[in-house]
Design a protein around this nucleic acid. Structure first.
Length: 253
DNA sequence: CGGCATTGTAAA
DNA sequence: TTTACAATGCCG
């Protein structure tokens, strides 16, 4: 009985309160951390999505990203746990999905956002410039919107994928894990500010090309078509349809 | 020098 | 493709 109540409460807390979460499939490996929730994929060894709520208040914290080191996620069993070793000499950055800059409000959230379950292999130029631009923009936007519901993750297009890692770790006597290199990344952002509710999506290529926000934005519907995910599904249907089918980049400035 | 991680190379 | 081993390198 108590267990049943727990399930009901969990479903309630995910479905009703957490508007940033996409619809969750039955076989999903969902991991909840202090500052974000993610769905871990045991084939790609990347998250399928990472979702979090960003508020104005969250940005007032002063926890520094220094001394927070990339590390395997202790929630994941060791045989499936990606470590920084997989990314070493790969040529790819360990790209945060939920950024460190959004987790300054809690030292625990900050530490957890450096778990490898929050990472994907990202081309350096994308990570440090164009993707970073979007993260900074979200932190600007939330000052006016008060709260943003954000979800992002990798895109894989094509039949075969590049992988990194996979080498047996002799020191730790651990089987190698192959981490898929995404061909791109998506992010969807929702504001429910009364009377001016709006949503927007973004799609980036995982390469070193020039990718300003203004050229990467699109509708949430577009991102759903490409990812197969159903974002913001706890919204009332007509509102969801309206917000996801259209977007206005200039309205976010 | 001792201990441990990293990496080139090759065997299974 | 995965595992074993040896040489190298780093840090005390």
């Amino acid at each position: 009985m108590y267990f049943l109540l727990k399930i009901i409460f969990f479903a309630f807390s995910l479905g009703v309160m957490a508007q940033e979460l996409p619809a969750i499939s039955d076989d999903a490996y969902v991991i909840r951390h202090t500052g974000f929730t993610l769905s871990y994929n045991l084939k790609t060894y990347c998250p399928d999505w990472v979702a979090w709520k960003l508020t104005k208040e969250h940005l007032k914290g002063n926890v520094s990203r220094k001394n927070n080191d990339f590390q395997g996620d202790p929630v994941v069993d060791v045989s499936n746990r990606v470590t920084p070793y997989e990314y070493k000499k790969s040529g790819y950055d360990r790209g945060h999905m939920c950024p460190a800059g959004d987790n300054k409000w809690s030292s625990r959230a900050m530490m957890e956002c450096f778990y490898m379950t929050n990472m994907c292999p990202q081309v350096a130029v994308l990570n440090q410039r164009w993707w970073s631009n979007l993260e900074n923009a979200c932190r600007r936007w939330v000052q006016k919107e008060d709260t943003l519901y954000i979800c992002c993750g990798p895109i894989y297009q094509g039949e075969t994928f590049k992988t990194i890692g996979g080498r047996y770790n002799y020191s730790q006597k651990r089987k190698g894990i192959k981490v898929f290199v995404p061909t791109g990344f998506y992010k969807v952002v929702l504001s429910l500010k009364k009377g001016k509710e709006k949503a927007i999506g973004f799609i980036y290529n995982n390469d070193d090309s020039r990718q300003p926000m203004s050229e990467c934005c699109t509708s949430v519907d577009d991102v759903e078509k490409i990812t197969g995910l159903d974002f913001f599904s706890s919204l009332e249907d007509t509102l969801e349809e309206r917000l996801e089918s259209q977007y206005d980049f200039s309205a976010w400035k």
